[in-house]
Nucleic acid binder design. Structure first.
Lengths: 201, 201, 201, 201
DNA sequence: AGGTAACCGAGACGGTACGTCGAGTCTTATT
DNA sequence: AATAAGACTCGACGTACCGTCTCGGTTACCT
């Protein structure tokens, strides 16, 4: 009943782990995900290939962890979604910030790669959504519930669906590049969506 | 400005073209896009590899055309978006149909593969969006404009953005599998979105 | 009992035939036999591939005929082997001329290619020997017989073997490049061989 | 002056090396050199193609080493050229043995292929001559010098040229198949050549 | 003089092998 | 025991030519 030998993580080289993260992100940024290879990551990180295969099941998994790593560090001074009492203003703020993030190359390249892989690999998608996307979405749920409590959103509204009315259109433009992703667009999406959520007089 | 010798398409073998489409769709359906190889398509189609490389620049391009080919044949009896005068009912109808399509494996596998590649390959994305997605989206624009003319949608609303409020959430759930994609969800998205578009009394 | 359709040689395009010869010799000279392709010959000659396949069974056969063609033209003012009565002088003359020929690139390249192919393809070897080499060798037989009649070569000597004592060493150096092929060497071979053929006092 | 990364030969798999030699010789023997492919050798040896490309620059180089390998093993019980004091008899012995070797298929096929390639590839020729042919020729040089010391060959004779009078004719018949290669022919060549080398009374 | 059968240029086709790249596994020596 | 290094088998890549096969277009013979 032996599991096929799992490595002893207490012995793991922290140095190598970080070098692999950096190499993975750098290569994906410079040459794109498809042209990034495990061999290339290992070479750039000054690491043996086996060290990667020992700790990660796939190229996508390496990139996901690398990306989570920087995301966590960036999220230390967590901005969350502000709650000034003005829902529309607060949402426009975060949505504009999201637009900026999606438009910035150092974020765009790995995030795009991970999204694309997730589209096609349900296992990765579960990780990607669970560890990266869902926590973000929950912030919207909280803010919307708070607005609901304050009477700015109709009582019957399901925040989960409301949030997707906001985030879905942004994701759509970002992923498929149908049209440019701008602050103006973010604002309009917020406005159109909120019309439908506001209480009827 | 020398074009690197283009083949003479009048000499092209229709037989091979169709065989390649069928092989590509079959293999993507059976083994997934990543494990589908050009060599495999050629072998299954009973065709030389060069015949694929002569006419398409990449595996994704083959699949796109194969998919467009069946899409066109399927769209002969064009369903379009009905216009019964009841916008909500009409939209729910198409949105439910779209949900069914996205949930049906023979459509899902190649569409997902193309979407994933498009996320990461802007050139393919342009083709994918322009030839497959955008025509679909224009149907929404038309239906929404018609509703606007009938006074069921506020005059100031931009149909392009309105449509993304409908389609974006669906795409989001489909692509990233955040939550199940159901008829109920389609209905709710339509309802939430239309609240915001309806004229204020 | 129909032979699988042989082409009608009276209809053959002389223009194409000559262009193919020239292209074949030029390409073999410029890029070597191995890198010369039938497609390349056809392209250079401004000829369809089929025109080559119609008239020749192989690349080697094309080159052989091309080479024979120039060899015939060159041999119009046939030098043969002179017969001044001084066998040694006469042989040195031809042997030196042969050395010069073998050392001249325009002759060397195609001749080498044909020899190499012949080593490995008995059918081609038969053609090569019968149409090109053997006629040359017969000249030696005649000259040696004449010398025998004049009493300059022992009566018991078989001219066929004697000739190979002269030509063999030259061929050996040429084909395998063991040592440089010079006039001095030609002279020495003639001298050493003739010692053995001369009548014993 | 960067060498394009050379592999570490201390890590080399002996098992693969021997399997490649055997496969190469077997395939050349069975199907001929031209129809022997690197892919075929790799498959037959149960080896990755890359393992061949890592250690050899060409198909011919593989075959050369394979052939040298068996030649070395065969030459353990070195026969050399005997020195009984009777030069003619000794030479006839080796020349007949050489004829037998050249007429035996397992030797003929690879040797012929290597010779043919050498005719056309000077680099290979250098290897072929230096490592295989020249050591054989030196045996003749030694034997002839010994005969010279014993007064059975004229003092002025250059053994190098004398040897080519013996070996050249044999090679000529073997390579171009002008006439059959027999013991009788070997004897005659020896006799004719020795006439010219013997001291004049 | 018109019809027609061949050769001709061109090049698409189904194939085979090329030489390269990278995947994932395994081995060796080092820390 | 984990590591850096890298050789190994394997499979696919995209390319180059093979030899076969249409496809018009031009000759050149033959009614």
């Amino acid at each position: 009943m032996a599991e096929s030998k799992k490595p002893d993580s207490s012995r793991r080289s922290e140095r190598s782990r970080r070098a692999i993260y950096e190499a993975a992100l750098a290569l994906v940024g410079e040459t794109g995900y498809a042209r990034t290879t495990i061999e290339g990551i290992a070479a750039r990180a000054g690491v043996g290939k086996q060290t990667i295969y020992r700790w990660w099941p796939s190229k996508a998994a390496v990139l996901l962890e690398a990306f989570l790593d920087v995301a966590e560090q960036a999220a230390q001074g967590e901005p969350l979604i502000p709650d000034t009492g003005d829902l529309e203003a607060d949402l426009k703020l975060v949505m504009r910030a999201t637009v900026d993030e999606l438009n910035s190359p150092p974020y765009d390249a790995p995030a795009r790669a991970l999204a694309a892989e997730s589209v096609v690999d349900p296992g990765l998608a579960a990780e990607f959504v669970g560890r990266l996307l869902e926590p973000q979405l929950q912030l919207y749920v909280h803010r919307l519930r708070s607005a609901q409590d304050a009477g700015h959103v109709r009582a019957g509204v399901d925040p989960r669906i409301a949030l997707e009315l906001l985030v879905g259109p942004l994701a759509h433009r970002w992923l498929l590049r149908t049209l440019p992703l701008t602050h103006a667009y973010a604002d309009e999406v917020v406005e159109y969506a909120l019309y439908g959520l506001a209480p009827r007089p």
